[in-house]
Design a protein around this nucleic acid. Structure first.
Ligand SMILES: [Mn+2]
Ligand SMILES: [Mn+2]
Ligand SMILES: [Mn+2]
Ligand SMILES: [Mn+2]
Lengths: 219, 219
DNA sequence: TTTTATTTTTAGTCCTGTCTAAATATAAAG
DNA sequence: CTTTATATTTAGACAGGACTAAAAATAAAA
């Protein structure tokens, strides 16, 4: 139905729309896709032609209902395949993203229906991100960034914001994983760094780390 | 490493080399890939450039060791995914080919290693075709076409030659599947048609069917 | 409100993979 | 051994996606 490039653009734009309401800028898309702004303009014009988003030059883009539907479906496939890779093939959660980037483009409704059932219709992927159902409905979770916690608060790690390999490997090393409880023992105001406790260990983390980890606070 | 198009060409050429020794012609490749001869010439020149096959104009092509390696690896992936689709996701054997055509291009050594182990390192795919091991070694089976059997001989169905959907659906309808024993009750010389028995049923099949089914004769 | 900096778009090019139409080799007939 | 048919290759074009360099809008400073 849609090309690999089109699906990747729609997915990237969808994620950018989540992070900040309103139109998405050409540069933001270019940066998130590691491409040039001029390439983005080209593609965005094609996608507008196909009614997958609205585009006014110099004003940014916004996905249409149809465009959102396509994007969410790609995200659903990506996350289901990640569950498969971790649950069935015993990959680590930091090893699956690249492979899922390929698998998410396999075209077959029936395949995904059956994969979902095979996996027991999971609600979350290995990084704690919700898996949209077949109608594109995303379960909203009440999570906040670890960096938003104050001293002496705690939360259970539920997902990561950016799941790049190096970051996830850092988390593995520090024994931080989905479901693990994190206590904020101290917090510096001038740089947002924290001292936290995870399991028996306590250590220092930078603001950059804290603003990439989502936690669920217990009520 | 290689593009989707390159992998598909190498795979098609490999299969053509199996069916008849010697060089593979441009037209044969074009027909098997449902493309034009001129397109084949273009691609074949690129593949020769990359040392994946030898090419002398007007003389046809032949895969190099390297080209064969790539082709066999794609075939290995294709067949492993077919096993996954049938064994784990409960697809019918006539529903998996199209999806496997996509999955065979997913790039990840580790993925295939793990998938193979997950499936119990199967030797054959759902159509009875052997699955090459990680070194590209294909188990040779002693199978012959059903059409080669004489009256009163019998054989066990081990694989199909062309696995297009309509043909496989025909087999399903007639209860012909891998492992099923087929008895040749009669054979006409002028058109090669046969009367066969499968399970309790006996019926007529055309030569076209008989030359698309491989059977293993018991010693 | 000019001037400067940043963002975005256009123009022109390139690469992959495909096609049609025309040219050239090879094979088959006569 | 010519003539005809078939197979194969070239030439030229095109669509999808991407890039660089240059132009045009918009935003930020002065
Ligand atoms: Mn991912
Ligand atoms: Mn994920
Ligand atoms: Mn197949
Ligand atoms: Mn098969």
């Amino acid at each position: 139905m849609f090309t690999l490039a089109e699906e990747n653009y729609l997915k990237a734009i969808f994620h950018l729309e989540m992070e900040s309401e309103g139109e998405v800028s050409t540069n933001a898309i270019a940066e998130s896709m590691d491409t040039k702004p001029s390439s983005v303009t080209d593609m965005v014009q094609k996608l507008a032609e196909k009614k997958l988003l609205t585009y006014k030059r110099y004003k940014g883009v916004q996905l249409t209902a149809e465009g959102k539907k396509v994007a969410v479906n790609v995200i659903r496939k990506h996350r289901l395949w990640e569950v498969f890779l971790v649950e069935k093939l015993n990959f680590q959660w930091d090893e699956v993203h690249e492979i899922a980037e390929q698998l998410e483009h396999i075209q077959s409704e029936e395949l995904i229906t059956r994969l979902d059932k095979f996996l027991g219709s999971p609600d979350f992927d290995p990084h704690g991100d919700p898996i949209p159902d077949k109608h594109g409905v995303l379960k909203r979770t009440e999570k906040k960034l670890l960096s938003e916690l104050k001293k002496n608060q705690s939360g259970i790690c539920v997902s990561v914001k950016e799941s790049n390999g190096e970051f996830l490997q850092y988390l593995n090393k520090k024994k931080i994983a989905i479901g693990v409880k994190i206590y904020v023992l101290g917090k510096e105001f001038f740089d947002g760094s924290m001292v936290i406790r995870v399991g028996g260990e306590q250590f220092f983390i930078s603001h950059k780390i804290a603003e990439n980890l989502y936690v669920q606070t217990q009520k």
